[in-house]
Nucleic acid binder design. Sequence first.
DNA 1: GTCTATAGTTTGATAGAC
DNA 2: GTCTATCAAACTATAGAC
Lengths: 169, 169
Amino acid sequence: MRNIAEAVNITTPALYNHFKNKQSLYLAAISDTFENKSELLLQALSGQEKPLLRLHRFITQLSQVLHDDPDFHRLMQRELLDGDEERLRYLAQEIFGASFQQMMELLVELNPDCDAHSLAVIIIGMVQKPYELNPLDRFFPDSRQQHNNPAYISGQVMAVLSTYLGDTV
Amino acid sequence: MRNIAEAVNITTPALYNHFKNKQSLYLAAISDTFENKSELLLQALSGQEKPLLRLHRFITQLSQVLHDDPDFHRLMQRELLDGDEERLRYLAQEIFGASFQQMMELLVELNPDCDAHSLAVIIIGMVQKPYELNPLDRFFPDSRQQHNNPAYISGQVMAVLSTYLGDTV
DNA sequence: GTCTATAGTTTGATAGAC
DNA sequence: GTCTATCAAACTATAGAC
C-alpha cells in the first residue's frame, strides 16, 4: 500500500478514501487489467471467415496483448499461482470462458475428431510461453529480438499448427 | 518462517540453526527442488535413438516431472515472476541450460531450417500450459481427468508436432 | 480528499538458558 | 539443537484535524 501510495503521490491513508482495503484495491486492479481483453480475444475468434484465418487472428491478437500489456500477463500468472477460489472462478468464467468456448468450437470445425479442450490449452501454451520465458532470454547466448515480437511468434505457432490442422480443411 | 517451523514441528528460532536467514532457506528449497530434474531431462534428450523418439521421450519426461512434483512447477513459475538476476541466471544456466541446448540441437537435426530457439520454447509451452491452467479446470464444464494425465498430454503434443516435424525426417 | 499521528498485528531475526 | 522471551521493523488500517 505504501508503494502504491507513493507511486500516485499521495499518502497511504489517502488510498483508503478510494478503496475499502488492500483486497478491494487488488480486485480493482485485476478487473481493470482483465476487462476488455476478453472482448478483444472473442472478437478475433468470431466472424464468417475461414476457421484457419480466425485462428490465426486469435493467435496474433493474444500474442499482441501479451506483448503490449506485461501487467496483464504477470497478473494472470500470479492469479494462477495464488488465486483463491472466487478469483479463479472469475478468471475462468468472466474473463476466459466465452473465448475458450468459442476457440473449442473453432477447433472442432477444423478437426471434428480432436480433443478441443486439450488442443486449445496447448495452443495457448505455444503463444504464451515465449513471454513467460522472456526473463531467461538474456542468459541464453542466442537470444534474438525476434523472440519478443508478436508477429514473429504468431507466425511460428501457425507454422507448426497449420500442418496439423491444415490437412483436415 | 513460522509456517515452515510449524510444518517441521520445531519453533521458529530453531530454524536459524539450519539456515542463516530466510533467503538462504529459500535458495536451499529451490536447489533441492530443481537439482536432479535437470539431469533427468538431459538424459531423455540424449542417446543414439532417432531424433523424433528422443523428442518424444523428453516431452513425456517433462510432462511426468510436472505432474509428479507440483512444487517444481510452482517454484519455477514463481521464479519467472519474481526472481532476481542471480536466481534467474541460476535457473537459466545451471538448471535448464544444458537441456535447452541439447533440445535445440535435436530440433535442428529434425529440421535444419527451423528457428530452434523459438520452437523449443513453443514445445515447452505446449507441455507445461496444461499444468499451469489446472487450477481453472474445475470451473470449465467439460473438464476431464485426461487433462491431468502425463501420457495423454505428451501424446497430444506429439500428435501436433509429428505432422510438422515428421515431414522433414 | 488529503494530511499527521498512531493503533494493532505480523514478520524476520537475536539473546540466552538448557 | 531446541526452547522461551523478546526485539525492531514493516505492515494494514483507523482517528481526527484541515
